[in-house]
């Protein structure tokens, strides 16, 4: 009886530890995934506006077309890399990045408790980036710009010198009406 009681306690303890550990892992996964989704969302918005901007290069041709859809820009590749400033100062009410900030005072990324990369000219750059490919079309009947493309999340592994590309999602169908025609 005494043996069974201890065994039951051990089972309960192990169950509790396992449960808490699983909850912790699940929360961590949730946080990581959500952060990635949010970063993707920001990149997608930037991509939308960048792809629409690309159309304006072709505006001289636009005025001549009255009946067809055509691609104004060929597929264009743009890279978005997260860049941030490590030190700011205020100049005329606006924050300005201090490009002479000491690199020794800041660390951009840590690995195994050690500082891996330090800022250059007061600026840190992320190792991972979004690569955007897009095409843009002009619909002369609807008088609208239609942009579509894809975004890949690129993970640079500095140690192995390898690049991992992960297609994330396809962006399509953003349409923007024009008011300058």
């Amino acid at each position: 009886m005494h043996y069974n009681s201890k065994g039951s306690v051990m089972v309960v303890v192990l169950t509790l530890v396992l449960t808490f550990a699983m909850i912790g892992i699940a929360l961590n996964e949730l946080v990581v995934q959500q952060s990635l989704e949010l970063e993707y969302m920001g990149a997608k918005v930037q991509a939308d506006y960048a792809s629409m901007s690309g159309l304006i290069h072709g505006q001289v041709s636009l005025a001549e077309d009255i009946s067809t859809n055509f691609t104004i820009t060929p597929e264009t590749i743009a890279e978005f890399k997260k860049i941030w400033c490590v030190e700011w100062f205020v100049n005329e009410g606006l924050k300005v990045c201090n490009t002479s900030a000491s690199p020794d005072a800041y660390c951009c990324a840590y690995q195994n408790g050690q500082c891996k990369t330090r800022p250059l000219n007061g600026v840190c750059e992320s190792e991972n980036r979004w690569v955007l490919k897009y095409t843009s079309r002009y619909d002369s009947i609807e008088k609208a710009i239609i942009a579509s493309g894809s975004i890949e999340f690129v993970n640079d592994d500095l140690e192995t010198q390898q690049v991992f590309r992960e297609p994330v999602r396809f962006v399509s169908g953003r349409q923007m009406g024009l008011n300058w025609e």
Partner: peptide
């Protein structure tokens, strides 16, 4: 957040 676009 930062955003860039062209305007004509």
């Amino acid at each position: 957040f930062e955003l860039a676009a062209l305007y004509t």
